[in-house]
Computed example of a mutant assay.
Amino acid sequence: MPKTDYLNDPDAPRANALVVAVAVVVLDESGRVLLIRRSDNGYWALPGGAQDLGESTAQAAIREVSEETGIDVEIVGISGIYSNPRHVIAYDDGEVRQEFSICLRARPVGGSLRTSDESSQVDWVDPAELAERRIHPTMLLRIKHGLEAQEPYIG
């Protein structure tokens, strides 16, 4: 379902949902980050999505990366928790979510790159090339925090 992100926009629709979501910073041995080009809005992003009932946050992260990229991962840490009430995501079905995303760090353990219904492209991206990609500011923040070796971000 197509989506539109609003950040600090006074004309943004009012949130009517809060959903636990995961995003995953996967770094390969060269320090490149795994990104997808989203099929719904064309932006480059970390793989991720909503956590399903009956699964842990780590299980959701592993599943989402595999589904969207073809890469199998092992979770190695937490990068941050993102819950900015001024960031809402509006879907074409009328749902407007307040941001709530847990961003984890992972390393690849198998699989091979492939696209999915949610990803029109999948690529390992050198951090120096991030500026060349169309990335929403909230996603770029997650990527930058994931590349930094520090305490998890909470905001």
Rank of each mutant, 00 (worst) to 15 (best):
T4W: 02
D5A: 05
D11K: 12
A12E: 11
A17K: 04
A17P: 01
A21I: 00
V22G: 03
V24T: 15
L27P: 02
D28I: 06
G31R: 07
L35A: 05
I36Y: 00
R38I: 05
Y43S: 02
A45W: 00
G48H: 06
G48V: 11
G48P: 12
G49I: 10
A50H: 06
E55W: 06
S56G: 14
S56V: 03
T57A: 08
Q59V: 01
Q59N: 03
A60N: 10
I62T: 14
R63V: 13
S66C: 08
V76I: 15
G77F: 01
I78A: 09
S83W: 09
N84D: 15
H87Q: 10
G94Q: 08
V96D: 03
Q98F: 05
E99P: 04
F100A: 08
S101G: 09
R105Q: 07
R107H: 03
P108W: 05
R114Y: 09
T115Q: 12
S116T: 07
S119K: 00
Q121M: 06
V122Y: 03
V122M: 04
V122F: 08
V125F: 09
D126A: 11
E132W: 02
R134V: 15
T138Y: 10
R142K: 11
H145N: 14
Y153P: 01
Y153F: 15
G155A: 14
